[in-house]
Design a protein around this nucleic acid. Structure first.
Lengths: 241, 241
DNA sequence: TAACCAGCTTGATCTAGATCAAGTTTTGCA
DNA sequence: TGCAAAACTTGATCTAGATCAAGCTGGTTA
């Protein structure tokens, strides 16, 4: 059966857990803090906020001096151009830290919207800076550096690649991320629509749909509603390269 | 006449200047340091190294715990995929800080190659961390955050845009950057080949060449050897949007 | 239990830009 | 200063994926 439920996130949903029991401790900003320091984080940093599908976490130009940790669920970040056209810049699932690009000017630069019921922890930056926590800055720096690398990787996946490569690489990326956070590698829910995937990858919806159909016909993947099954991971990885 | 020569870079070429007289002081990592702290930076951090055209600044997997400040000249960063195909991820001109994506794992992730004779200052990270300079970390954080935003902007310029938009936006980007660093906004040398521009923008060389020709015919730009003249900045900006 | 609607799929056609081909210009070097 | 290689341009043709069109599916509300 489907093993996609994450034990700690589930328990968190019913009874919010503290940072020192959080499954994201190793990757979240307070990593490197000792237990006593974690207790000093204020309430708003410790307790996750619940967002319903289509709720906005933040919008462009809104003053923002926080990061957000996605404890469960998923969000999409996007811009809207002068003609009103949406362009998705990133998707974020459980375990992601978001809002890093707004540190430089203290204001959000994209919209960030929940794609399903999600829990996010707000991490207030001034609080972290003020307390001069040992190890925080360096950890934060590594986090931002890693994000730059991720942005480059996504760019490489979209420039000079075929539609099939983009979709294969997108699925592999999700699979890897979910596996790293304790979920099943080969069976998971796609929280975003085909339209969103297409937009994110710079393709038309119809093209994404055709690639999915083609991958299904080759028995590389299968879908049932929004659940995706990876049946031939090796072949998919090969396509993604 | 062409005003593309940068006063301080030129003087630096003949007689390397110290950080406290450097034109990049306001944006470089040591910004926020007082004069006495700057003096503590070791020699290798203060004196620029000269690279000739095609010299490699760093290569993938090479241990790297430094950033580099481009004091003059220009470099390109690229990856090489399994089939040996090069993909340029970024160009960097005078005033740029490079190597931020390697902080997260202490090793370079791309090739970085000088496109012309260039001067780069190495900024050793452990030195900065060890001395616990006030303000450095926060400044560095802002720098990385800004770079994430730049990567997003470049992505937005390449996904779902026409060849003409990409090229116009690319030229405007160069123009803005150069202007911010004291060069002419409407007349400058293109340090990269058409092939490199095409690769960076996800286009074929022929397409880039055709767009340049078309822009020239419309009297929006002109070129003479590798010098580019922007004749109708407003129209170019309009195209880029 | 229908019927609505967003999301998805499949087919037919069209087009921006890739690829192929053949010059021309510029650059670097002996 | 002259010649070879690299860079650039222009034209002809081809194609991956966009666009247009129409039908399908499943989840939600009354």
């Amino acid at each position: 059966m489907c093993r996609m439920n994450h034990r700690r996130s589930e328990s968190g949903m019913r009874n919010p857990i503290q940072c020192n029991q959080c499954s994201m401790q190793s990757i979240c900003v307070p990593a490197g803090l000792v237990s006593s320091e974690i207790d000093k984080l204020d309430k708003s940093s410790r307790e996750p906020h619940v967002y319903s599908k289509r709720d906005m976490v933040y919008s462009p130009d809104q003053p923002l001096n926080s990061l957000f940790a996605v404890k469960s669920g998923s969000v999409k970040c996007y811009t809207i151009d002068s003609e009103g056209k949406q362009q998705i810049t990133s998707f974020h699932l459980t375990g992601d830290i978001i809002g890093m690009e707004s540190i430089s000017n203290g204001a959000a630069v994209t919209y960030c919207e929940a794609m399903e019921t999600s829990m996010l922890c707000e991490i207030k930056l001034n609080r972290l800076f003020a307390q001069n926590f040992t190890g925080v800055d360096k950890n934060l720096l590594r986090l931002l550096s890693h994000r730059i690398g991720q942005r480059n990787t996504h760019y490489l996946n979209v420039v000079n690649t075929t539609a099939e490569q983009r979709v294969a690489s997108f699925i592999m990326g999700l699979s890897d991320h979910l596996y790293e956070h304790g979920f099943s590698r080969h069976e998971f829910k796609l929280p975003m629509t085909r339209t969103d995937i297409a937009n994110y990858l710079g393709l038309a919806v119809e093209t994404v749909s055709r690639v999915f159909s083609s991958l299904k016909q080759k028995d590389i993947i299968d879908t049932k509603q929004s659940i995706l099954f990876i049946q031939a991971p090796a072949e998919l990885k090969q396509m993604a390269s």
